[in-house]
Design a protein around this nucleic acid. Structure first.
Lengths: 199, 199, 199, 199
DNA sequence: TATGAATGAGTATTCATTCAT
DNA sequence: GATGAATGAATACTCATTCAT
């Protein structure tokens, strides 16, 4: 095969797209992304057939990146609270460190150009987190809710998102904010105080 | 010719824009909005000099609408928890009822076409809510945080948003979900149990 | 209405398209046509929504032009041969005078971008000629053929086309060539010599 | 490495081009042709330096193919009418059997991408037919025309083309149509009835 | 003021051709 | 010679904005 498609080039495009979309929104020209990636305008379409394909694959790449950031050091055998803390910390630190990725992930999440398949695939990446949430919710005051686990997951995402915003806004306090955010989350979703042991 | 430009037409444009942006994103053509509003393509620019002006004024209009929805029946003299509940309920019901407005508000919030002034003006609209949050936070475990009130406000917004999503997804359970969401919020931000009185 | 769509501009576009397509083929850029018509690149699409629409409407316009060229002075009450001669002459003179139109009509006729509707509408324009052909064919040696009239019409078109080519190639002999072509056509399709009267 | 470029591959490209151009017009991508021919995109340019070269050589190949189809069994010693009939039959049968080739030949004939040389070379292939036409025309009513032989040749081509169309349209009647077409041709171009012997 | 035609810069995508492997 | 990735000019069509009516 003559000059195989370079994985490095593919990554360069995804990285460039992340930067450019973060700066200019999803309406940014593909030509801008190509030049940012250091390739010719037309070459982008060798790697991603259309802009929509690029958008969808970028979403998956970012979700995968996030998942990979949450795995290392996961304390499977510790208490739910410890595991929740690990997850929270990874989530929030990733968001703070990968500002562009986080922003683009949100942009894509709201966009109508994301296919249902991509959305579903994006969720699948977090089955581990779901198991944890199940565990937590079973002892939570929310335990009787319909769709309690999904709701808890959504709250986790939303509260972590908020926390990340504040960490980015005031980096000096970042580690304290991270803790405060988690405490709030744990109060909201953690074990029922009148019922369970003090976690 | 005291007030030549018709206020009704201005509203029609804002309403049409809300509908069209919700359906097609902020990239939707102004021509589409004009036709949806029942006016000529060019007339839109009599009311809003550029598309960016329209975007910014739409944001303010929606924020104002939301604020107006939260005022009636506000129980100024009741307990913080009652006032918080009123606020929560208004917020979440508005979101559920005004799906398009909520969606467009989020779209605009993420957009880079929103001026800093608009963003600031959007916040100002909620000074009443801020006073309440101040009150709540002073008795909350978060009381020692930097920017505690702002953080609590952001959490309120994020958790209400999440709750609204779930209410829209399962209308049968909506009123229960609304309550569950509030309970979670109150656990997270409400008074410190070891310290304050049960509100 | 503010500045109504100008019929003159529409014609200018069709004329420009005829010239440009004749010179560069149907692949010629719409931008070229617009500039040739003296309007802005985008204005072309005010008059013809897509290039395909332009192609189809151009075909109809040319066919109509041809039909209109064949009507004046049609000797309805004369002998078939006289009527045939009038038709032939009009056809062949139009082709010689309107070289670009003839060429583009052929180009479009072969193109797969012509809709079935356009093709059908293009034929309808020539119902008068068909009546004449019917008349002629009934006395012709071809009278027993399946689809004799259609076949005779196709031969008329093909032979006139050939004749026009030779007239254009040698203008000095044009009027003689026109006559020779007709004579050949009449021998081929005209009345059976062993049977009918010498027309 | 006496003849490194494979003749088989060259033919495969020409065949593929015929099929693809017939289906999609001359604007079809070279990449499509290459893939249809079972070779790599770039390899096509080893055999044909540019697309225009391919177009011109394809034209010649088709013309040659047609000429070769007309040679076998040519009754050199028979009457002009018999020889004409043989020629007509070969021509028309080739057109009916080789629909794609005929169509592409016409497409190319109208195209401005065909060089004058190719056009001339295409004609040369038919010197045998020209001799025959000369013979026929000398006894024809057209005998006094300027360029009579060329005109007769053009009529032959045009009438055969028309006949082929009708044969393709109604295959059941094909052999009858073939005969009817020839009869019309012979009436148009054959010997002068008042003068020559009944051929 | 209202209208909608006119404008032309901007955009995703295609494709003949080149060239590193 | 064969391959197919790389290139960038070219092209149809869109759309915010202007302006003649």
């Amino acid at each position: 095969m003559a000059r195989p498609k370079s994985e490095a080039k593919r990554s360069a495009i995804l990285d460039a797209a992340t930067r450019v979309f973060a700066e200019q929104g999803l309406g940014a020209p593909t030509a801008r992304i190509a030049s940012e990636a250091g390739i010719a305008e037309g070459s982008l379409f060798t790697y991603f057939a259309t802009k929509d394909v690029l958008l969808n694959e970028l979403y998956l790449a970012i979700k995968t990146d996030l998942r990979d950031a949450m795995m290392p050091g996961y304390p499977s055998t510790e208490s739910p609270r410890d595991r929740a803390w690990h997850t929270w910390r990874a989530l929030v630190d990733w968001g703070a460190a990968q500002g562009d990725k986080r922003q683009v992930m949100n942009l894509l999440g709201l966009s109508d150009r994301l296919s249902a398949e991509s959305r579903a695939a994006g969720m699948e990446a977090f089955s581990a987190a779901n198991a944890l949430l199940n565990d937590i919710v079973s002892r939570s005051p929310m335990r009787d809710m319909q769709a309690a686990t999904a709701f808890a997951g959504a709250l986790l995402g939303a509260m972590a998102e908020t926390t990340t915003d504040f960490m980015a806004r005031d980096p000096v306090q970042a580690s304290q904010t991270r803790q405060d955010g988690f405490d709030a989350f744990w109060r909201a979703v953690g074990p029922d105080i009148n019922q369970g042991e003090p976690s």
